[in-house]
Amino acid sequence: MNNSSRFHTHPAEHQTEEMARRYFAEGLPDRAAEICRQLLALHPGDAGLRELLLQAEAAIATARQGRLPPLPATDEPHGMLDLEELPEAYGIDECELIARDPFHLFAYWEVTAATLDAARHQLGDEGAQAQLILRLFLASGAATRELRDLALGEARGRRYLPAPKPGTPVRGAVGLLSPSGLFIPLAHSHGLRIPPSEMASPDLRAAWMEVAPARTVGQEREPVQIVRGPERPQPPERGPQLPRWRPGVISYSSKSGNH
């Protein structure tokens, strides 16, 4: 599976011990220390890096002792303008699911203390023992069926969980589950379909459709115009003639094809 080359990621080939030593020698101990920390995260047992980091940190401390923090060289702002930390909580009841891949879901949720208290109150004697859970439902049309429960513990958070089955439509709800099995949902996610992990049905009798081609030059927005279909043709007597091409199966000559 290929991935995008993505311009903005300069792979960290310059984050080397050699580069850290150069920065240190050039009087930039903070840059040297930064590279050392990144490399130590990958190679925590590297004594040479650790020694260099200590030297760089000592140099930074020495530089700080003798002077006040440097003033900005110009009237430019420091760092990103308008930067603020994000709120810890929004004071709402919510739950959301995202399909990470055919086998994993990502969930985040938040339930307010007031909502939890009200739900526990509603459960009466069982309220104190009720557990906050994420319940997954099969969500196909109007039908719903419970698929799985996951204990949450915290009133807000995020977590990965195994997906019930590739290709399944699911919905989630955060709620309280009483010891006797009564479930009070407190927040619902949107519905989603977990991506399938393999080819769909071998039924190849697709319907066909004709769409009017876009006109050629200088057009304004024009609607997609379905001219005909979808129509499912009569089953052919011997089945459709299908391409048997499978990428990578046929090997071509590797010779340079200068024609």
């Binding site: 599976m1 379909r193 459709m209 081609p213």
Partner: peptide, 28 residues
Amino acid sequence: YLAEYPTNAVVEPSPSSWGDGGYSSVWV
């Protein structure tokens, strides 16, 4: 190509991406 072949099969595509693994694991 669509101007030359305006009739094509109808398929409901599957959720996917071209990222590593083919789904959303890079962004999630």
